[in-house]
Every structure is written in C-alpha cells, then in structure tokens.
C-alpha cells in the first residue's frame, strides 16, 4: 500500500475518527480526538488491511498554548507508517492509556506524564523514572519551565 492508498483507505474507513492534518510531507499525520483514542488504536491494530502492530514512538509536545501527544505507528507485516496526534489543553491535560493495545506504550506514557505533566488515565504504574526520586521542580520539558540552576544558552 502506498501512502496515497493509505490516505484513501483511511478516509473511506475511518471518516469521523481521524482527520488528516496538513503537515504530511512524506507520511500522513492524523488528528484523533482524545475520547476516541483507545478505540481507534484498537481498530487500527486489528484492521486486516493495516495491522498497525508496531508502536514506534510517543512524544509529547508543548507548543506554548496547548499540549500534543504524537503517536508513531508502523506495521511489521504490511510495512506501513502512520502518525496520530492528539491535541490536549495546556493545563490539566488528560489522556487515556493505550497500553492495553500495545504494551510497549507503558514507558512512553510514564515519560509523558513525568516530563510534561499529562495525566495518563488507566496506567498501571505511573511513577517517576527518569528524574531523581526527590525531584520537586515540576515538569521540566514544558516551555515555561525554569529553575534556579537552569542556565539558558545565550543568544549569539
């Protein structure tokens, strides 16, 4: 399946679940509503034509006004690639855990919670693991984060 075929297939089969974002140069980026995330992911994984069984990556993004969670998926057997994006509010963001769909998501979601402060619901082990155990300075990957010993690179 080429990317154009993939786009067509998705617009035919997932019309109200996924909206194509205009960022895709090489691979399509789709927006998914936070409430529908787990259901869509499950369908994508079990779809015979797509079989997105490979969870590549999950990255949080803080754009300053809102939070985003970007899921990169691939399929081992069908050789496809797809990115999903969930747009969240900046404060008190919440997202459902997809670890029942892909167990691999477990640590990525912990990281999302730890560095961005996005609360992951239904996660079995939401504990600190990258930062020191006694860390109390908030969520360091946020754009507005600051600390006394944090030195920014001076502009050249």
């Amino acid at each position: 399946m080429t990317f154009d075929e993939l786009k067509e297939y998705i617009s035919a089969n997932y019309p109200d679940d996924m909206t194509l974002l205009d960022t895709g140069r090489c691979e399509p980026f789709y927006e998914v509503k936070a409430e529908k995330l787990v259901a869509v992911c499950k369908r994508l994984r079990d779809d015979e034509q797509l079989k997105f069984d490979y969870f590549c990556n999950l990255g949080g993004v803080d754009t300053g006004e809102r939070m985003e969670a970007v899921y990169s998926l691939a399929s081992y057997s069908m050789k496809l690639r797809l990115d999903l994006k969930v747009i969240l509010p900046h404060e008190n963001a919440e997202i459902d855990s997809v670890q029942e769909v892909w167990p691999a998501a477990n640590w990525y979601e912990r990281e999302l919670w730890e560095l961005y402060g996005v609360n992951v619901k239904n996660h079995n082990n939401l504990t600190r693991f990258l930062l020191p155990d006694d860390w109390d300075q908030g969520f360091p990957m946020r754009k507005d984060w600051d600390a006394p010993d944090f030195i920014r690179m001076p502009e050249l």
């Binding site: 140069r25 990556n57 990255g59 970007v70």
Partner: peptide
Amino acid sequence: EVYARVENSRGELGVYIQSDGGKKPLRVK
C-alpha cells in the same frame, strides 16, 4: 513535522521533529 527512522545496530532509531518555521526546532523527540 516529521518522524524519521533508520535501522541502527540496536533496532529502530527514530526522531520526531516539529518545526514552527523558526531556526530552532519546537520539539525533538
């Protein structure tokens, strides 16, 4: 935004870059 990946000696190495058009990336994962 883009997610690129290569085959490394330890499996898939990937990077996600989001650019806002400035000279610095908005996010690199």
